[in-house]
């Protein structure tokens, strides 16, 4: 048996190490809790519906890999990982980086919009202040007569 074959066997052993089922249970609970919290936030109008698809997708993905570990094993082989936990960590990290970058872009856009609105408020307020005194000024005596 060559070194490469021994390593392949060892990797296979890692990937098919028996699971206690505890981690799967936690994953299932987490998926259901996440979906429930997202729905509750939407119902309370704390989270807008257009921001929910990504979190429902995370809940669904967690549910799928929690029910069937073979999905994670297949992904691990595809990515060249030795353990399914390493695959989970990598996917989690990639997701967090992507979501942070996405929100940074959204915040950048929102801050530009807020700045323009605040500037517009200042400009309109001054225009109003210049108009209001003229409208509120009492008419001259001759006009009233």
């Amino acid at each position: 048996m060559t070194d490469a074959e021994r390593l392949a066997d060892l990797r296979n052993l890692f990937l098919h190490a028996p699971e206690s089922g505890g981690a799967q249970g936690i994953a299932l609970l987490f998926a259901l809790a996440l979906a429930a919290v997202v729905l509750w936030l939407v119902r309370r109008r704390i989270l807008r519906a257009e921001y929910t698809p990504i979190w429902m997708a995370v809940a669904l993905a967690t549910l799928v890999v929690g029910v069937d570990l073979d999905v994670l094993r297949w992904l691990s082989r595809l990515l060249g990982a030795w353990t399914i936990s390493a695959t989970l960590f990598m996917l989690g990290e990639l997701f967090l980086v992507a979501i942070c970058l996405n929100y940074a872009v959204r915040i950048s856009q929102a801050s530009v919009h807020i700045r323009h609105l605040a500037q517009e408020v200042a400009l309109l307020r001054l225009r109003l202040e210049k108009l209001e005194p003229a409208a509120a000024r009492p008419a001259p005596e001759a006009d009233r007569a």
Binding site: R115, A118, Q119, A122, L123, L126
Partner: peptide, 16 residues
């Protein structure tokens, strides 16, 4: 007087 509703920064004040 152009009044910003909150602090926007020196550059933003100039732009207003």
């Amino acid at each position: 007087v152009l009044r910003h509703p909150f602090n926007l920064g020196y550059g933003a004040a100039l732009q207003t």
